Computed example of a mutant assay.
Amino acid sequence: MKIKIASVLLLQLFLISCSSTISTVKKEYTLHNSKDLKSDWTINSKEWILKKDTLTGNGSLSPWGVLVSKKELPENYEIDLKVNMTGESLFEIMLNLDKGKYIRTYLYQIDQNIVIGDGVYDKKDDSYGKRGGKTLFKKPMELENNKWYSVKIKVQNKQLFFSIDNKTSLECSLEKSSLNQKGKLGFITNGEVKITGLKIKSL
Protein backbone atom coordinates (compact mmCIF):
# COMPACT_ATOMS: atom_id res chain seq x y z
CA MET A 1 0.00 0.00 0.00
CA LYS A 2 2.83 2.41 0.93
CA ILE A 3 4.57 1.62 -2.36
CA LYS A 4 1.38 2.38 -4.30
CA ILE A 5 0.95 5.77 -2.53
CA ALA A 6 4.60 6.65 -3.12
CA SER A 7 4.24 5.75 -6.80
CA VAL A 8 1.20 8.00 -7.19
CA LEU A 9 3.03 10.92 -5.52
CA LEU A 10 6.07 10.45 -7.75
CA LEU A 11 3.85 10.33 -10.84
CA GLN A 12 2.15 13.60 -9.82
CA LEU A 13 5.54 15.30 -9.29
CA PHE A 14 6.71 14.02 -12.69
CA LEU A 15 3.59 15.32 -14.45
CA ILE A 16 3.96 18.73 -12.78
CA SER A 17 7.63 19.03 -13.78
CA CYS A 18 6.86 17.99 -17.37
CA SER A 19 3.81 20.22 -17.66
CA SER A 20 3.85 22.69 -20.52
CA THR A 21 2.21 25.37 -18.35
CA ILE A 22 3.82 27.58 -15.72
CA SER A 23 1.01 26.69 -13.31
CA THR A 24 -0.95 23.44 -13.18
CA VAL A 25 -4.41 22.55 -11.90
CA LYS A 26 -4.69 23.13 -8.14
CA LYS A 27 -1.14 24.44 -8.08
CA GLU A 28 0.03 27.99 -7.43
CA TYR A 29 3.35 29.05 -8.93
CA THR A 30 5.56 31.39 -6.91
CA LEU A 31 9.07 32.60 -7.62
CA HIS A 32 11.29 31.57 -4.68
CA ASN A 33 14.94 31.81 -5.66
CA SER A 34 17.50 32.39 -8.40
CA LYS A 35 17.39 28.71 -9.34
CA ASP A 36 13.67 29.07 -10.18
CA LEU A 37 14.41 32.22 -12.18
CA LYS A 38 17.04 30.45 -14.30
CA SER A 39 15.01 27.27 -14.83
CA ASP A 40 11.57 28.82 -15.45
CA TRP A 41 12.40 32.07 -17.26
CA THR A 42 14.45 33.26 -20.24
CA ILE A 43 16.60 35.97 -18.72
CA ASN A 44 19.38 38.41 -19.38
CA SER A 45 21.19 38.64 -16.01
CA LYS A 46 22.11 42.27 -16.74
CA GLU A 47 18.40 43.11 -16.96
CA TRP A 48 16.72 40.93 -14.31
CA ILE A 49 17.89 39.61 -10.92
CA LEU A 50 16.18 38.00 -7.94
CA LYS A 51 17.39 38.79 -4.43
CA LYS A 52 15.52 37.29 -1.50
CA ASP A 53 11.87 37.79 -2.47
CA THR A 54 12.33 40.78 -4.81
CA LEU A 55 12.65 40.57 -8.59
CA THR A 56 14.37 43.66 -10.02
CA GLY A 57 14.31 44.59 -13.70
CA ASN A 58 16.44 47.21 -15.44
CA GLY A 59 15.79 48.55 -18.91
CA SER A 60 15.99 51.70 -20.97
CA LEU A 61 14.18 53.24 -23.91
CA SER A 62 16.31 50.89 -26.01
CA PRO A 63 16.61 48.11 -25.08
CA TRP A 64 13.70 47.46 -22.76
CA GLY A 65 14.34 45.06 -19.89
CA VAL A 66 12.38 41.92 -20.84
CA LEU A 67 11.75 38.71 -18.88
CA VAL A 68 9.72 35.84 -20.44
CA SER A 69 8.55 32.55 -18.91
CA LYS A 70 9.64 29.31 -20.59
CA LYS A 71 6.24 27.68 -20.08
CA GLU A 72 2.78 28.77 -21.18
CA LEU A 73 0.10 30.20 -18.94
CA PRO A 74 -2.93 27.97 -18.27
CA GLU A 75 -6.11 28.66 -20.24
CA ASN A 76 -7.74 30.20 -17.15
CA TYR A 77 -5.49 31.85 -14.60
CA GLU A 78 -5.03 34.49 -11.96
CA ILE A 79 -1.84 36.54 -11.43
CA ASP A 80 -1.12 38.55 -8.29
CA LEU A 81 1.95 40.70 -7.65
CA LYS A 82 3.15 43.94 -6.10
CA VAL A 83 5.15 46.35 -8.24
CA ASN A 84 7.19 49.49 -7.65
CA MET A 85 8.41 51.60 -10.60
CA THR A 86 11.53 52.97 -8.93
CA GLY A 87 12.83 54.53 -12.14
CA GLU A 88 11.27 55.79 -15.40
CA SER A 89 7.65 55.42 -16.45
CA LEU A 90 6.57 52.01 -17.80
CA PHE A 91 5.87 48.59 -16.31
CA GLU A 92 4.21 46.08 -18.60
CA ILE A 93 2.90 42.57 -18.02
CA MET A 94 2.90 40.54 -21.24
CA LEU A 95 0.03 38.03 -21.35
CA ASN A 96 -0.38 35.06 -23.69
CA LEU A 97 2.80 35.79 -25.66
CA ASP A 98 2.68 33.56 -28.73
CA LYS A 99 4.24 33.89 -32.19
CA GLY A 100 5.33 37.47 -31.59
CA LYS A 101 1.93 38.72 -30.37
CA TYR A 102 0.71 39.30 -26.81
CA ILE A 103 -1.78 41.16 -24.65
CA ARG A 104 -0.37 44.35 -23.14
CA THR A 105 -1.45 45.08 -19.56
CA TYR A 106 0.54 47.95 -18.16
CA LEU A 107 1.00 50.98 -15.93
CA TYR A 108 2.10 54.09 -17.80
CA GLN A 109 3.21 56.96 -15.61
CA ILE A 110 3.62 59.58 -18.37
CA ASP A 111 -0.03 59.31 -19.46
CA GLN A 112 -1.22 58.46 -15.91
CA ASN A 113 -3.23 55.47 -17.18
CA ILE A 114 -3.51 51.75 -16.78
CA VAL A 115 -3.85 50.13 -20.19
CA ILE A 116 -4.89 46.98 -22.06
CA GLY A 117 -3.41 46.81 -25.53
CA ASP A 118 -2.55 44.60 -28.47
CA GLY A 119 1.21 44.03 -28.55
CA VAL A 120 3.98 42.70 -30.76
CA TYR A 121 7.34 41.44 -29.55
CA ASP A 122 10.41 40.67 -31.63
CA LYS A 123 13.08 39.44 -29.22
CA LYS A 124 15.81 40.23 -31.77
CA ASP A 125 14.74 43.79 -32.56
CA ASP A 126 14.30 46.77 -30.19
CA SER A 127 13.34 49.22 -32.94
CA TYR A 128 10.08 51.17 -33.02
CA GLY A 129 7.18 49.02 -34.22
CA LYS A 130 8.88 45.76 -33.25
CA ARG A 131 7.92 45.96 -29.56
CA GLY A 132 4.83 47.36 -27.87
CA GLY A 133 1.64 48.13 -29.75
CA LYS A 134 -1.69 49.89 -29.82
CA THR A 135 -3.91 50.80 -26.89
CA LEU A 136 -7.35 49.18 -26.79
CA PHE A 137 -8.64 50.25 -23.37
CA LYS A 138 -7.33 52.68 -20.78
CA LYS A 139 -8.40 54.25 -17.52
CA PRO A 140 -6.87 57.24 -15.70
CA MET A 141 -4.94 56.51 -12.52
CA GLU A 142 -2.45 58.55 -10.54
CA LEU A 143 0.86 56.68 -10.78
CA GLU A 144 4.09 57.56 -9.01
CA ASN A 145 7.66 56.34 -8.77
CA ASN A 146 8.77 54.68 -5.53
CA LYS A 147 5.27 53.56 -4.62
CA TRP A 148 4.04 49.97 -4.33
CA TYR A 149 0.94 48.92 -6.29
CA SER A 150 -1.01 45.67 -5.98
CA VAL A 151 -1.74 44.16 -9.39
CA LYS A 152 -4.34 41.49 -10.09
CA ILE A 153 -4.96 39.91 -13.49
CA LYS A 154 -7.62 37.30 -14.11
CA VAL A 155 -8.33 35.48 -17.37
CA GLN A 156 -11.34 33.20 -17.24
CA ASN A 157 -13.72 32.04 -19.96
CA LYS A 158 -11.88 34.32 -22.45
CA GLN A 159 -12.56 37.41 -20.33
CA LEU A 160 -9.66 39.55 -19.05
CA PHE A 161 -9.86 41.48 -15.79
CA PHE A 162 -6.98 43.82 -14.83
CA SER A 163 -6.98 45.85 -11.60
CA ILE A 164 -4.65 48.01 -9.51
CA ASP A 165 -5.04 48.26 -5.72
CA ASN A 166 -8.59 46.89 -6.06
CA LYS A 167 -9.62 50.43 -7.05
CA THR A 168 -8.97 50.98 -10.75
CA SER A 169 -9.84 48.23 -13.21
CA LEU A 170 -10.28 47.36 -16.88
CA GLU A 171 -12.08 44.42 -18.49
CA CYS A 172 -12.39 43.06 -22.01
CA SER A 173 -13.30 40.01 -24.07
CA LEU A 174 -10.31 38.28 -25.68
CA GLU A 175 -12.48 37.10 -28.57
CA LYS A 176 -14.16 40.43 -29.31
CA SER A 177 -10.83 42.26 -29.15
CA SER A 178 -9.06 39.58 -31.24
CA LEU A 179 -6.44 39.00 -28.53
CA ASN A 180 -4.28 35.91 -27.96
CA GLN A 181 -5.99 33.18 -25.96
CA LYS A 182 -2.83 31.24 -25.12
CA GLY A 183 0.86 31.85 -24.64
CA LYS A 184 3.58 32.77 -22.17
CA LEU A 185 3.97 35.41 -19.47
CA GLY A 186 6.50 38.23 -19.56
CA PHE A 187 7.50 41.51 -17.94
CA ILE A 188 8.85 44.69 -19.55
CA THR A 189 10.34 47.85 -18.08
CA ASN A 190 11.95 50.95 -19.58
CA GLY A 191 13.67 51.81 -16.30
CA GLU A 192 14.00 50.10 -12.92
CA VAL A 193 11.12 48.13 -11.48
CA LYS A 194 10.76 45.91 -8.41
CA ILE A 195 8.30 43.00 -8.16
CA THR A 196 7.38 40.99 -5.07
CA GLY A 197 4.73 38.41 -4.20
CA LEU A 198 4.36 36.97 -7.70
CA LYS A 199 1.70 34.23 -7.73
CA ILE A 200 0.27 32.47 -10.77
CA LYS A 201 -2.71 30.24 -10.13
CA SER A 202 -4.75 27.98 -12.41
CA LEU A 203 -8.51 28.53 -12.23
Rank of each mutant, 00 (worst) to 15 (best):
Y149D: 11
Q109V: 14
Q112N: 05
D122I: 12
T105W: 01
D98S: 15
K130A: 10
Y108H: 07
G119P: 07
F187K: 01
W64I: 07
G65S: 10
D165S: 06
R131I: 13
K147L: 12
E144R: 14
E92Y: 00
K99Q: 13
M85L: 15
Y108I: 00
G132A: 07
L97S: 09
D125V: 13
G186E: 05
L185Y: 10
K134C: 10
K182V: 09
L185Q: 05
D126A: 15
G132T: 08
N190H: 08
G100T: 06
S173V: 06
K134L: 08
C172I: 07
S89E: 13
K158M: 10
V151G: 03
V155H: 08
G186S: 06
P140K: 04
K71N: 09
S163Q: 12
I79W: 01
V68K: 01
L67H: 04
C172E: 04
T189Y: 00
G87L: 08
K139T: 14
V120F: 13
F137C: 04
N190A: 08
G133D: 00
T196E: 01
D165G: 09
E171I: 07
I103E: 08
Y108W: 09
W148Y: 06
Y102P: 07
P63W: 11
D98V: 13
I103C: 12
L198Q: 08
Y128F: 13
I93G: 02
I188P: 06
K101V: 14
D122M: 12
L97V: 13
W64R: 09
V155C: 15
Y108M: 02
I116Y: 06
K147E: 14
Y102T: 05
S69T: 05
L160T: 03
G133F: 06
L67W: 00
E142H: 14
V66W: 05
L185C: 11
M94N: 02
I153M: 07
T135L: 00
T168E: 11
I116T: 05
I195F: 07
K101E: 14
N113R: 03
G87V: 05
L97G: 11
L179Q: 13
D125T: 14
E92P: 03
T168Q: 08
E175I: 15
G186T: 07
S127R: 10
R131F: 08
I93L: 02
K154Q: 11
E92K: 00
G117R: 02
V193I: 04
K176P: 11
L143Y: 09
G191V: 02
V155E: 12
D80F: 11
V68A: 01
L95P: 03
I103T: 14
V193K: 03
G132F: 03
I93F: 00
S69W: 01
Y77R: 01
E175Y: 11
E75K: 06
V120Q: 12
S150F: 03
I188G: 08
G100H: 03
K154P: 10
S178K: 15
L170A: 01
N96V: 04
K152G: 02
E142W: 12
V83R: 00
K154F: 08
K124S: 15
K176A: 14
F137V: 02
G129R: 02
Y108C: 02
N84R: 04
N157Y: 08
L97Y: 15
K147N: 14
P74I: 06
N113C: 07
D98Y: 15
K154D: 09
L73N: 05
E192F: 01
K99N: 14
